[in-house]
Amino acid sequence: MSDEKDTIEVDDDFVIEEPEEVPAVPVETAKTNLSKRRTIDNLLEERRLQRQLADYDFDF
């Protein structure tokens, strides 16, 4: 047996890189997204109905 320590050669082709840090962004839940979508849909429906009422002639 040899008394010399074995050396490990480092290959530069296999450098492990640390992933870039991603800023912490709070994840919105599906329930919140659905709630926002329903609110938008309701506002669009209200606008559509307001336009229909404005176009309707109320004179008799």
Rank of each mutant, 00 (worst) to 15 (best):
M1D: 01
M1T: 03
S2K: 11
S2F: 07
S2Y: 02
D3C: 05
E4P: 00
E4S: 13
E4C: 13
K5M: 14
K5W: 05
K5C: 06
K5E: 03
D6Q: 15
T7Q: 14
E9W: 15
E9M: 15
V10I: 09
D11L: 09
D12C: 13
F14N: 05
V15G: 00
V15D: 01
I16D: 01
I16A: 06
E17Q: 11
P19Y: 02
P19K: 00
E20K: 07
V22D: 02
V22H: 14
V22A: 04
V22G: 05
V25R: 12
P26Q: 02
P26V: 00
V27T: 05
V27H: 11
E28K: 04
A30W: 09
K31E: 06
T32C: 05
N33Q: 08
N33L: 05
L34S: 02
L34F: 07
S35W: 00
S35I: 01
S35T: 00
S35F: 04
K36R: 02
R37D: 09
R37C: 10
R37Q: 02
R38H: 07
I40G: 03
I40E: 01
I40C: 06
D41M: 11
D41E: 09
D41R: 15
N42W: 10
L43Y: 10
L43V: 10
L43F: 05
L44D: 09
L44K: 05
L44C: 08
L44W: 13
E45S: 14
E46L: 12
E46Q: 13
R47V: 05
R47A: 12
R48G: 01
L49K: 08
L49S: 11
Q50W: 14
Q50A: 12
Q50F: 02
R51M: 10
Q52A: 14
Q52W: 09
L53I: 08
A54V: 07
A54W: 01
D55G: 09
D55M: 03
Y56I: 05
Y56H: 09
Y56L: 11
F58S: 10
D59V: 06
F60W: 11
F60P: 02
